[in-house]
Design a protein around this nucleic acid. Structure first.
Length: 571
DNA sequence: GCCGTTTTCGGCCCGACTGTTTTCAGTCG
């Protein structure tokens, strides 16, 4: 069982106990435990085997017992019992924005146990009659339900990708399997994924299908054939594994990577070119990597290899013909991370740990940008504290020649549009990131006013997570993207692709619109934990999907250039 | 349920805002 799955189980236990009305501190202990497990680097299974689990702060006797049961038996009696006692629909209701534990309990009291029942009641304008509810919360509930419908069974890439990778690893280690690749919308780096698709080659298809069925993560088989298996993971994500021969692999990989429009555009080109596809002796392909083989396949169409992220509307084929494909940014182009939190505010790693982790990744620089004073829950820093941190950073920089730490801040844009520090203070910072964290449900006029004040401030360099969305769980605040992008272009403000898979904000679509307006993009992780520096890959996915090149991205530039760009007076 | 031990029991992050109220509970970050 993976750390993530254990974390989900603990978090579900917390929610169910919360609905039942158990001791809130006990609930919090489980919730906290889930976060801790999620952030651990090494597999929990290993820690259990070595008896090291109880040494972790926050994991005591009780949690240890539950986690060990999950690792050994893939189940927890406590969770089973709770699932039995509390109707599952209430968890969904709890996840609606604006609905908290108290509301769920009061709905439960009224006999409501599913989203459908709640929706019916809201549509009949009867939710507003319940104690503590009113017309506005009733509307918020309906909007939340609509959001869930839009999501309709899709899973965020941050959940789908690790799940896919673990199956790829599993298959790679089997002697029956030669080649394994992720395909489908996940390979195209779609932010929400319908299903994990994996394509592999093997001569022993039936044996492989049988073996897969016995995998402990296969919760329920949906569909079974001689050459494929579709199943659900315990948390509901569907996975499809298809087995083909070595000869079939590349065309099938391209076909399943999609989209349909891309495949059709390729087929249309096949009819128009004289190349004899069938002449190829495919046997030699097995000595090539999958991508090398795919490149050769594209050559058959007299085309350069087209990155999967761009295989969308079919028009990329025309672009490829004209030699107009962008040279997409790659992870190795990133020279630093410019949005990082540490223990100084709400991070879990120390400043020194973060810097060491950045160096380990081969970065040349990073910016420490802890929270500003008004964000109390995140232990935001006063001016004095920030200056103190700046000194610590200067000392750190003295001891290293090949790596530079910038002293920055992630400053809140306050509810009324004021910024959290005066200009005289902001001027002293190497980098100022501005963010909207509070009052996300303000009307468009107020939100625009806040963003405008921030972007027009000469010291604000970057607007972080520009729409405030949480992927699949919270809609953006009410902002007109065209207006925002025009303003960013006019003021010369850099926009962030927040690489945290919970956010992915800007989205690929919006990042493309930003590029078209000549806006500089920064790809940052917003990491609160050194392990999360690796999230940069999700941001790169989005940037590639947006067609971004090295030159479009601030933190692909050398430090000297970055400093020059930040110093340049804003428009 | 976890932690610390100056505490094996008692405290556990907290302030602001919203929408509900008519003085405050619930939600959020």
């Amino acid at each position: 069982m993976h750390n993530q799955e254990i974390a989900w189980a603990l978090s579900e236990i917390a929610d169910l106990m919360d609905i039942k009305g158990e001791n809130p501190f006990k609930v919090r202990a489980f919730r906290q435990g889930a976060l801790i497990i999620e952030a651990i680097e090494s597999p929990v299974t290993k820690l259990v085997a070595r008896n090291q689990l109880s040494k972790i702060k926050g994991i005591g006797k009780g949690l240890c017992a539950e986690i060990e049961a999950l690792v050994h038996y893939q189940e927890s009696h406590l969770l089973d019992k709770l699932r039995h006692e509390v109707p599952p629909g209430l968890l969904e209701i709890l996840n609606l924005p604006g609905v908290g534990i108290a509301s769920v309990r009061s709905f439960y009291k009224e006999g409501i146990t599913t989203i459908e029942e709640l929706e019916e009641l809201a549509r009949a304008r009867k939710v507003r009659q319940l104690p503590g509810q009113g017309p506005k919360t009733e509307m918020a509930i309906l909007r939340g339900i609509e959001m869930i419908r839009r999501r309709s069974g899709k899973f965020p890439i941050g959940i789908a990708k690790p799940a896919a990778n673990s199956f790829v690893n599993f298959l790679q280690n089997l002697s029956e399997v030669n080649r394994v690749e992720i395909t489908g919308d996940l390979r195209r780096s779609e932010e929400m994924v319908q299903e994990v698709s994996i394509l592999c080659t093997s001569e022993e298809e039936e044996l492989l299908v049988d073996l897969l069925k016995k995998h402990p993560s296969v919760n329920k088989v949906i569909e079974e054939g001689t050459r494929h298996l579709r199943f659900r993971l315990p948390f509901g994500l569907p996975v499809q594994i298809e087995i083909v021969s070595e000869e079939e692999f590349i065309p099938r990989w391209i076909e399943t990577t999609g989209s349909k429009a891309h495949w059709q555009a390729l087929q249309a080109r096949k009819n128009g070119t004289a190349t004899a596809f069938e002449n190829h002796e495919n046997k030699w392909q097995q000595f090539l990597s999958s991508q090398e083989a795919e490149e050769i396949y594209y050559q058959n169409f007299h085309l350069p290899w087209i990155p999967p992220e761009l295989r969308e509307k079919g028009e990329e084929v025309g672009q490829a013909v004209r030699g107009a494909l962008p040279k997409l940014i790659e992870e190795r182009d990133i020279r630093g991370d410019l949005h990082i939190h540490t223990k100084w505010s709400d991070g879990v790693s120390t400043l020194e740990e973060m810097v060491a982790a950045g160096r380990d990744r081969g970065y040349e620089y990073m910016a420490i940008t802890d929270h500003s004073q008004s964000l109390h829950i995140a232990r935001g820093l006063t001016e004095e504290k920030l200056l103190e941190q700046r000194k610590a950073i200067q000392n750190l920089n003295k001891g290293q020649k090949d790596f530079t730490v910038l002293a920055g801040v992630e400053m809140d844009i306050l509810t009324d549009g004021r910024l959290d520090y005066p200009d005289e203070f902001l001027e002293k910072m190497d980098l100022v990131i501005a963010s909207v964290h509070t009052n996300l449900r303000q009307d468009r006029h107020k939100i625009h006013n806040r963003i405008e004040k921030a972007l027009k401030n000469p010291h604000v360099d970057i607007l972080a997570h520009p729409t405030g969305r949480l992927l699949g769980s919270r809609d953006p605040y009410d902002v007109d993207l065209d207006w925002l992008l025009d303003l960013a272009a006019k003021t010369g403000t850099i926009l962030e692709i927040n690489a945290s898979p919970e956010r992915l904000d800007l989205s690929a679509t919006h990042a493309r619109m930003a590029k078209d307006r000549g806006i500089m993009i920064a790809i940052n992780t917003d990491a609160h934990d050194r392990n999360r520096l690796a999230d940069i890959s999700y941001g790169i996915n989005n940037a590639r999907k947006a067609g971004l090149e090295k030159k479009d991205v601030l933190n692909c530039h050398r430090l000297k250039e970055v400093k020059k760009i930040l110093k340049k007076p804003k428009g």
